[in-house]
Design a binder for these strands. Sequence first.
DNA 1: CCAAAAGTGTTAGGGTTACACCCATGT
DNA 2: ACATGGGTGTAACCCTAACACTTTTGG
Lengths: 237, 237
Amino acid sequence: MLPNQYENIDRFPVALDTIIFGFDRQNLKLLLIKRDFEPEKGNWSLMGGFLEADESLDEAASRILTKLTGLKNIYLEQLYGFGEIDRDPVERTISIAYYSLINIHDHNKELVEKYSARWFPIDDLPDLIFDHHKMVEAAKGRLRHKAATQPVGFELLPEKFTLPELQQLYESIYETDLDKRNFRRRILSMNVLEKTDEKQKKFSKKGAYLYRFDSKKFEKQKAEENGAGLSFKPPKV
Amino acid sequence: MLPNQYENIDRFPVALDTIIFGFDRQNLKLLLIKRDFEPEKGNWSLMGGFLEADESLDEAASRILTKLTGLKNIYLEQLYGFGEIDRDPVERTISIAYYSLINIHDHNKELVEKYSARWFPIDDLPDLIFDHHKMVEAAKGRLRHKAATQPVGFELLPEKFTLPELQQLYESIYETDLDKRNFRRRILSMNVLEKTDEKQKKFSKKGAYLYRFDSKKFEKQKAEENGAGLSFKPPKV
DNA sequence: CCAAAAGTGTTAGGGTTACACCCATGT
DNA sequence: ACATGGGTGTAACCCTAACACTTTTGG
């Protein structure tokens, strides 16, 4: 056995913080928790936790997300590593931020209650502890970029959804209005939606057709277009 | 003073690994070092080091880069956090990868020698230790993306450069050929280049005009276009 | 019958691509 | 004079954005 050459290296707690996006058919929202421990007890915060020895970063982020939502196999993507010296007043930590997209109706209510968590509209967030605001800003940017590049956001919707709902989601992500006709054309031309013959009448008398995301078609497209990808650009501001 | 609530948290060495791009007017290259310590002694590796207590992640990456190149104020951007459990056989570490763009003629030769470092063409790299190949792939993707979105790569060139040289650089980044006329039009329409009246005659009898990157114009543009940004897209594959 | 949301096509303009010839000069 | 790389313009096409009316149906 070799001696451990890393003997004299500094070691740090590695935190994972998760930005959790949800969509309630109206607004894009974030799930935040109210800290019940010091420091910053009683203030709003992203859900987070510390890396443990037997898990990768991805696994840890996933574990932390499950802890709050009860959900497994959630869409989760690493965002950025935050490592300012004084970002945590207790002790020097570094934090890898992840963001996730979940179906807002789909989480475990008891767990959310246990953590005093609440959904906040993305454009009306409370103050957040530490550098969590920076993390949220980064996540918003990433989500916008992602939505511009590939059909994203299906994770935020129920299995079946209408085109007006999907448009509403994109409008929340871009914080702008989109033209109905152009939106439909573009999203349908991506060829990853499957129309059902059911109608959703909750929001209109006429009713809107329900669509389903066809992940087979999506995978096929991704494979064919080798990375260049399906493209959905935000309008120019 | 509060008791440290993080008392029972696991702690890990946090590595920084840097992907160093350079360009020799012909090919895009990476600066790699030959490890002179175990494990994997004698094998090629990215330049790396460990985070210390008194520096942020960015500062650490910058320190490590200076250690190898002698250069300060280098273009440096965080890439991704790598944290597989067994990525380092010595001990569980996590690594935040950074990539940087430097002028290939501009580094300290002695230091490079001290680390047995060498420039490798991007399309002819040796085997790398640990997960460094994954890091390089991620960096290539990021650079390509960045070049498509904004005028990048001036960091890789000397202060004055010709348009054919710049085109050569973009061609290396995209690994494809570009049309001379279209390239010129697009790059000049970005309005961030300043023409000098000097000519570079090293590569042709006629000589090519030298240009300079005008960072004032660039900043102005960035400000005006609020993020949407100057756009330079790669051709479709 | 009417209010309210869903659904549908066309046109004009801007941007991207494809493409070929002349210029300057060192040898 | 000629070989070598540098420099220039235009036309076709495609994609995007702008835009208004009809359909359905619950109340």
